[in-house]
Simulated scan of single mutants.
Amino acid sequence: MSTKLGRGDKAPVFELPGDQAKPCKLKSYAGKKLVLYFYPKDDTSGCTKEAIDFSALREEFDKIETAILGISPDSPVTHGKFKTKHKLNLDLASDETKAVLEAYGVWTEKSMYGRKYMGVERTTFLIGKNGKIAEIWSKVKVPGHAEAVLAAARALG
């Protein structure tokens, strides 16, 4: 069952396999801000656009000591191919068990054409240097989203 997180909550700890055969751990980002974005599937139109947008702003995020990590249920191999195909310069982590998706409350019941199924609700968390959630964007609409997250990360200081 998914948990509903809010601003000010401690970010749930995680360790997941990354796209480059290295683990992605929350504690690796200690002392930095972290944009943690959850997306449904590699190489689909919305997910590709979102990844490209975050990747394009990577240098701006770096200037304000903010890391970017995308998480989906896809495998590390799929993530690697996705990154190579679209020349992405950000880290991707694989949550095939969906444990982290559930901990962050983004593995939810969805509906399409009257059929109900479980899936990832596109959601972004901005985690402060203190390890607490500073901002949450739920049911993200991709156009302009990366820019809005960058502005929030700048404002967080």
Rank of each mutant, 00 (worst) to 15 (best):
S55R: 00
K25C: 06
I71K: 02
G70A: 13
N130I: 04
Q20Y: 01
S75I: 10
F125K: 06
G46C: 14
Y113N: 14
T3I: 15
E102V: 02
K132Q: 09
M112A: 12
L69R: 06
T66K: 11
V106Q: 09
A152D: 08
Y104K: 04
D19G: 00
E102A: 13
A51E: 01
L150C: 13
D91E: 15
S138H: 15
V100P: 08
V142S: 02
K32M: 08
K22T: 15
E96S: 14
L126Q: 09
E147M: 04
Y29L: 07
F38L: 08
G80P: 07
E147H: 02
V140S: 03
P76D: 08
M1W: 01
P76L: 06
D95Q: 01
N89K: 14
S28F: 03
A51M: 05
F61W: 09
E109P: 11
L156W: 07
K41C: 03
A153C: 06
K110G: 11
L5G: 02
E96R: 02
K132W: 03
R122D: 01
I64C: 03
F61E: 05
L101G: 01
Y113S: 11
A99Y: 06
F82T: 04
L92C: 14
A93N: 09
P76V: 04
G6A: 13
T78I: 07
T66Y: 13
D9P: 04
A11Q: 12
A11P: 13
S94P: 06
A148T: 13
C47D: 01
A155C: 04
M118I: 01
A51N: 03
P73V: 04
L90G: 00
L36T: 08
A56S: 09
F54N: 07
K49Q: 00
V149N: 05
Y39F: 14
Y113E: 10
C24T: 10
R122E: 00
L34W: 03
K132R: 13
H145K: 12
N89T: 08
L57K: 06
F125Q: 07
V106Y: 05
T66I: 14
K22C: 05
P73W: 09
E50N: 04
V13M: 13
K110S: 12
G8C: 08
L150W: 08
A51G: 01
L34M: 07
E96Y: 06
K129F: 07
K98D: 02
Y29V: 12
E96F: 03
K41F: 06
K116N: 12
D53G: 05
V140R: 01
N130K: 09
Y117F: 13
I52Q: 05
K33V: 04
L57V: 07
D43M: 10
L5N: 05
L126R: 05
L36D: 06
K141Q: 15
V106G: 03
S45H: 14
W107Y: 12
D62M: 04
A153E: 08
E65R: 12
E15N: 06
K33R: 07
L26H: 11
L90V: 10
L16T: 01
E147Q: 15
R7T: 12
G128V: 09
D9G: 00
T3G: 11
K27C: 11
